[in-house]
Design a protein around this nucleic acid. Structure first.
Lengths: 97, 97
DNA sequence: TCGTACGCTTTCCATCATGGAAACTGGAAC
DNA sequence: GTTCCAGTTTCCATGATGGAAAGCGTACGA
């Protein structure tokens, strides 16, 4: 966690998206299905939130062929990492940490 | 910040309410007007969010006579402090802090 | 080549959240 | 009574949310 200016980001703050970012923060990428199980949301819900993070430029989705089928991997983009770090910094300010 | 089990609380998570709790966390109480200026929201907005936190049992509102008029002071209840601490703990888990 | 399965996407829908403007209310001062 | 003050409540328009169900492209299997 390097130094990033605190910047509250509503696009990240929504519970599901916050958890998505949190889950992606310390790894390169995670499979759609794995993420879905962790967050315990419906396919459609995760798909929509990922699409939104992708539209914001925070998440990169990549389809990779795996045993015959396409699996979707999601990972934070550099911008996504910065935004998430900034948002966490903002949360810290708010919480007084 | 003592040890409180992490517990994500949607009632606290909303940006305005999160900031209200953050602002009240380290003090006994804050005047309505002061809070409103800090958060930069309309009277109605703050009033509604405070009412909601009060309904949740997290905030206590107290009207105090001051130079002829009633001023409203808002402060966290013990339950509110616990809930806020729990929510912050949950955020920490999510952010991986 | 047709049928089926898989892995998401998109649509549909009902519910709730949000925030400001404007109207309203209760108590105090004149 | 009237006015002022400090919030409160109503109104309203916009958008978020999430799951079910239907849709879609790709990959086999017969």
């Amino acid at each position: 966690m390097s130094h990033v200016p605190a910047r509250f980001d509503p696009e990240i703050h929504a519970p599901v998206r916050l958890r998505v970012c949190g889950a992606l923060a310390d790894v390169g990428a995670v499979e759609f299905a794995v993420l879905r199980q962790r967050l315990e949301v419906a396919d459609s819900t995760l798909s929509k939130h990922l699409a939104r993070l992708e539209a914001a430029g925070y998440v990169a989705l990549r389809k990779e062929a795996a045993d015959g089928h396409l699996r979707t991997w999601a990972g934070l983009t550099p911008a996504g990492r910065t935004a998430f770090a900034g948002h966490v910094a903002a949360l810290r300010q708010i919480a007084g940490l």
